[in-house]
Simulated scan of single mutants.
Amino acid sequence: MNEYEIRPAVLDDAEALTVLGVESFGYPRPDGPPRPPDADGRRTYVATWRGTPVAAVVDRRYDSWFWGSRFRTAGIAGVKVALEHRGQGLLTPLFERMLSDAVADGCAISTLYATAPGIYRRFGYETVGSYDELVLPTAELAAVRTTGGSVRRGGACDVPVLRELYARWAVTHNGPLTRDGASFARTDEEVAGEYPGMTIATDDDGRPSGYALWSRSGGYGQDGTLEVHDLVAVTDQGMRSLLRALGTSATVAPTTVISTSAPDLLQLALPSHVWKVRQANPYGLAVLDVAAALTGRAYPTWLDLDLAFGVSGLPVGSDGAYRVRVADGRAAVEPAKNAEIVYTATGLALRYAGVSSCAELRQAGLLSGADHDDERWDAAFSGRRVHIRDYF
Rank of each mutant, 00 (worst) to 15 (best):
L94F: 12
L134A: 13
R145F: 06
L83G: 14
D63Y: 15
G51D: 07
A102M: 06
D38S: 13
A104S: 14
S130L: 09
D38T: 14
L136R: 12
F71I: 08
L94K: 12
L94E: 08
D105W: 06
Y125W: 09
G124H: 00
R60I: 15
E126P: 05
R97Q: 14
G68H: 11
V144S: 02
A142S: 11
G129N: 04
V159E: 09
F71K: 10
T111L: 11
F95P: 02
R153I: 10
E96M: 00
G68W: 01
E133G: 05
G149C: 08
A56R: 12
W65D: 03
V144H: 00
G129D: 03
Y131Q: 03
A143I: 01
F95N: 08
R122P: 07
S100K: 13
I109W: 00
E96A: 15
T48M: 15
V151N: 11
G154C: 03
G89R: 05
R121D: 10
V135D: 12
A55I: 11
A39Q: 09
Y45G: 03
T44P: 07
L90Q: 05
V81G: 08
P93S: 06
G129P: 10
S64H: 14
L83W: 10
V57A: 07
R50I: 05
V57K: 00
T52N: 02
G148R: 02
D158G: 06
P93W: 10
V144G: 02
T73V: 03
A104Q: 12
D40W: 08
A55P: 06
A104T: 14
S100V: 08
A56P: 08
V135C: 14
R145H: 02
D132L: 00
A156D: 06
S110I: 07
D38P: 13
A102F: 07
F66I: 02
V79D: 06
G148Y: 09
R70P: 08
L141Q: 12
R72Y: 01
R97L: 15
I119T: 04
A74H: 11
I119H: 04
L99N: 11
H85D: 02
A82E: 11
V103F: 05
P160S: 08
R50F: 12
V54K: 02
T138V: 04
L112C: 06
R43N: 15
S150I: 02
D101K: 10
P160L: 02
G87W: 10
Y113W: 07
V151P: 08
G106D: 04
A114N: 04
A39V: 11
F66Q: 13
C107F: 10
G78E: 13
T138H: 07
S150E: 07
A116F: 09
D101H: 07
V54G: 08
V144L: 00
Y125A: 03
S64Q: 13
D158R: 00
E96K: 07
R61Q: 14
V159S: 06
L91S: 05
Y120N: 07
Y113P: 07
A142E: 12
M98P: 00
D40M: 14
P93Y: 12
G75I: 05
T127G: 00
G149L: 06
S100E: 11
E96D: 13
V54A: 06
G87S: 04
Y62E: 09
G68A: 09
S64F: 12
G148H: 11
T73W: 01
V151S: 11
G129I: 03
T115K: 10
L136Y: 11
I119M: 01
